[in-house]
């Protein structure tokens, strides 16, 4: 297995407050890793650094062995909210990276079909439900055909049933696109279902291994692991 993403953060500070210190994480190609931890522990900061959006830190990010300088087309990012541009249609949002809408039409059509929005290409974001908007955001995240996908609590704003559907969708697209996935979540059940590896960020990194995919929701092994994670979080 080759390493897709290497994150080494010596220090990340906001003013005088240090949020990350000596954090190192490696993601194997094709691996789905969830990052969990208490609020304010630096999960989202770590993701922002890994995406290249935040460059005000001490350390180094490597993508397939090469140091990352700023944002990259090889890294897709999906935010907590869909963050679609409200003046663009769904198709235009998905193809936002493209300067030539016509040349990207086939890719957009394929991506929208993958996320189940093939009938909503011409819709405006205001006409979508929360789940549909997040599906469109996933399609947009895949448009650059990234090799690594970063997700910052992407399903936290949708209802439980939609969340489960979106989780299955994420697993499907991660498999189809051979993606390496780093997911920040507060939902331990979500982490247990989606991840090959769960990393708990709290005074260093602790790892948990939910077992090989496909995993079942709420089985006995998952329950045991959830208890262990909650114990580590002192909950």
């Amino acid at each position: 297995m080759t390493i897709a993403l290497e994150i080494h953060v010596t220090e990340k500070r906001y003013g005088t407050r240090t949020v990350l210190r000596n954090v190192s994480l490696q993601l194997q190609e094709g691996e789905v890793v969830s990052l969990i931890g208490a609020s304010g522990c630096g999960k989202s900061s770590l993701l922002s650094i890994a995406s290249g959006l935040d460059q005000a830190y001490a350390g180094e990010i490597k993508l397939h062995g090469k140091p990352l300088q700023g944002v990259s087309r090889d890294i897709g990012f999906i935010f907590q909210e869909p963050r679609l541009f409200p003046w663009l249609t769904v198709a235009e949002n998905v193809a936002f990276d493209s300067n030539n809408a016509l040349s990207s039409q086939r890719l957009v059509t394929r991506l929208l079909a993958e996320v189940g929005l093939q009938d909503h290409a011409g819709a405006l974001p205001k006409q979508l439900s929360g789940g549909q908007a997040q599906r469109a955001a996933i399609a947009r995240g895949l448009f650059t055909q990234p090799r690594v996908l970063l997700l910052d609590e992407p399903f936290s704003a949708v209802d439980a049933f939609t969340r489960m559907k979106l989780q299955d969708l994420l697993l499907k697209v991660a498999y189809q696109h051979k993606l390496t996935v780093l997911l920040v979540t507060h939902d331990i059940d979500e982490a247990l279902y989606l991840s090959d590896r769960i990393v708990l960020l709290e005074a260093g990194l602790t790892e948990f291994h939910p077992g090989p995919a496909p995993r079942k929701r709420g089985d006995l092994e998952a329950a045991k692991l959830k208890a262990a994670i909650l114990d580590s979080l002192h909950v």
């Binding site: 995406s51 959006l53 700023g70 944002v71 990012f77 935010f79 909210e81 963050r83 541009f85 936002f96 990276d97």
Partner: peptide, 10 residues
Amino acid sequence: KLIEVARLYR
């Protein structure tokens, strides 16, 4: 947040 999305696209 929209600016942040735009920054992703360089």
